[in-house]
C-alpha cells in the first residue's frame, strides 16, 4: 500500500520542465562526496538567473544547495543499493525538488515512524524540542533534525511517498520538496 506523509499538494506537478539527474550506483561508487558535488552543481545551475543581483544570487544558490544537499545526504545514507534520481524545476515563486531512491522495509518503517512525529506541529518548536531530545539521547540513529531545519529555517514544504514493498522487500521512496524563491534585491 502506498503511504504519504507531509504536504500532499507538492507531491504532484513534477512532470513538466524538469531537469533530471540520475546517479548510478555501481560505476560511481556513490559516496558522501557525491552529495556536495551534486548539490553544488544543481545550485549553480538554478541560481544563474539571479546573477544580476549578488545578494539574490548568494541567497538562492545557498538555499537550493542546502536543500538538495540535505535530501541527497539522506538518500545516500539510508538507501538500499541502487540509483538515486534527482529531479528539479523552478518557476518565479519556488524551487521544487524530487529525490527518488529505494529503501528496505525496516528502514522505511523507522522513517515513517519519525515522519509521523515531525510532520505534525510547528517545525520551529519541533526543531528545538528534538535538538534537546537528541542531546539527551545521542544514540538515536535518525534524528530528523535536517528535515526540521529545512522546514523551520528555509520555509521548505516537504512530502514523502512510499510505494508498497516488492518481492525483495524493496520500497521506492519519493521525497518532494518546495522552497520559496523570491527576488528581494534590485
Amino acid at each position: 500500500m502506498t503511504a504519504l506523509f507531509g504536504t500532499p499538494d507538492i507531491a504532484i506537478g513534477m512532470k513538466e520542465n524538469v531537469s533530471r539527474l540520475r546517479l548510478f550506483d555501481g560505476p560511481l561508487d556513490l559516496s558522501w562526496r557525491h552529495c556536495a558535488t551534486t548539490s553544488d552543481f544543481i545550485a549553480d545551475l538554478f541560481a544563474l538567473r539571479f546573477q544580476s543581483s549578488r545578494n539574490d544570487y548568494m541567497e538562492v544558490r545557498h538555499s537550493i544547495g542546502y536543500l538538495v544537499n540535505e535530501l541527497i545526504e539522506n538518500a545516500v545514507k539510508f538507501r538500499a543499493p541502487g540509483e538515486i534520481v534527482i529531479e528539479a524545476s523552478m518557476d518565479s515563486e519556488c524551487f521544487k525538488l524530487k529525490v527518488s531512491n529505494d529503501v528496505d522495509g525496516e528502514n522505511a518503517s523507522e522513517f515513517q515512524s519519525l515522519l509521523a512525529d515531525i510532520t505534525v506541529g510547528d517545525p520551529k518548536d519541533l526543531l528545538i524540542q528534538r535538538i534537546e531530545a537528541n542531546a539527551a539521547n545521542p544514540d538515536v540513529a535518525r534524528s530528523g533534525l535536517g528535515l526540521l531545519t529545512l522546514m523551520s529555517d528555509y520555509g521548505a514544504r516537504l512530502a514523502w511517498i512510499f510505494s508498497s514493498a516488492d518481492e525483495r522487500d524493496r520500497i521506492c521512496l519519493e521525497t518532494y520538496a518546495s522552497i520559496p524563491i523570491s527576488q528581494t534585491h534590485n
Binding site: 540535505e70 535538538i131 537528541n134 534524528s143 533534525l145 535536517g146 531545519t149
Partner: peptide, 11 residues
C-alpha cells in the same frame, strides 16, 4: 555547515 554540523553546535 550541514545539519549534522548545526546539531553539533547545538549540542
Amino acid at each position: 555547515l550541514n545539519s549534522s554540523g548545526i546539531n553539533l553546535l547545538a549540542k
